[in-house]
């Protein structure tokens, strides 16, 4: 799987490529519009991470250019501008996803995985880890083919973990992505603990081969149980 990162900030470029390389992706980078343009002309990629604001041009133009070339790459727009117009315009021009800065590394990896999966399976986004399979579109979870019934929040949490297996997720990050904007002033995570506790019990009862383990007392990690 080959990924092209088009981002003008060197530090961010380094972090993005390091994170993706760790996930065994092949990563190439471009820091300017011109460099990206020449790489796109010469090579094919599975996924392109595109920063909209480049020193020598607008990323959206590059996106138009990519589509004009008839390339079928998955494109994720990465932008500091959270403007809705940008997002809409980007998606209209055929971007597959939109990731606003600042983002969590885990989020980046999950989004890349998700668009690649979508690309491969023609829209079906089933995620499988161990004996657990999860389908985001139908909101179904199966353990060994047996359906596991989860409440809404429990499902959202499991989805979040399954998109980021083996990565540490801290409780703030989890709360923010599952509960959304509501959560940002809280300093008490009782509500997260309660949901995690129930989810763990349900997974264990269904004899799932994955579990949510605690890390450092403030984070969680989805791991596959060694048989």
């Amino acid at each position: 799987m080959k990924i092209l990162i088009i981002e003008d900030d060197s530090s961010l470029r380094e972090i993005m490529s390091r994170a993706l390389r760790q996930e065994k992706f092949t990563v190439e980078t471009a820091s300017t519009f011109a460099e990206a343009d020449s790489k796109l002309a010469g090579y094919n990629y599975d996924c392109i991470l595109l920063d909209i604001m480049l020193p020598d041009g607008n990323g959206l133009q590059l996106l138009e250019h990519i589509r004009a070339l008839g390339k079928r790459e998955n494109v994720i727009i990465v932008s500091a501008r959270n403007a809705i117009e940008d997002r809409v315009q980007g998606l209209d021009l055929g971007a597959d996803d939109y990731l606003p800065k600042p983002f969590h590394t885990a989020e980046l990896v999950a989004r890349v995985r998700s668009v690649l999966r979508r690309g491969r399976s023609g829209g079906e986004l089933k995620i499988e880890i161990g004996n657990v399979s999860l389908s985001p579109s139908s909101r179904q979870v199966k353990v060994e083919g047996q359906e596991l019934s989860l409440l809404k929040k429990e499902f959202d949490i499991l989805l979040y973990f399954m998109q980021r297996p083996a990565h540490m997720i801290d409780k703030t990050m989890l709360a923010e992505s599952v509960w959304g904007d509501y959560v940002d002033d809280t300093d008490n995570f009782q509500f997260v603990y309660a949901q995690i506790k129930n989810l763990r019990r349900k997974l264990a009862d269904a004899k799932a081969s994955i579990e949510i383990s605690s890390v450092y007392g403030f984070g969680y990690k989805l791991i596959e149980k060694s048989a």
């Binding site: 993005m16 500091a80 800065k101 600042p102 983002f103 885990a106």
Partner: peptide, 17 residues
């Protein structure tokens, strides 16, 4: 936004790896 993203990602990297 970009510097904040960088700091956050580096901290996450440390925590994760």
């Amino acid at each position: 936004q970009t510097p904040l993203a960088i700091i956050g990602n580096r901290v996450e990297w440390l925590l994760d790896e």
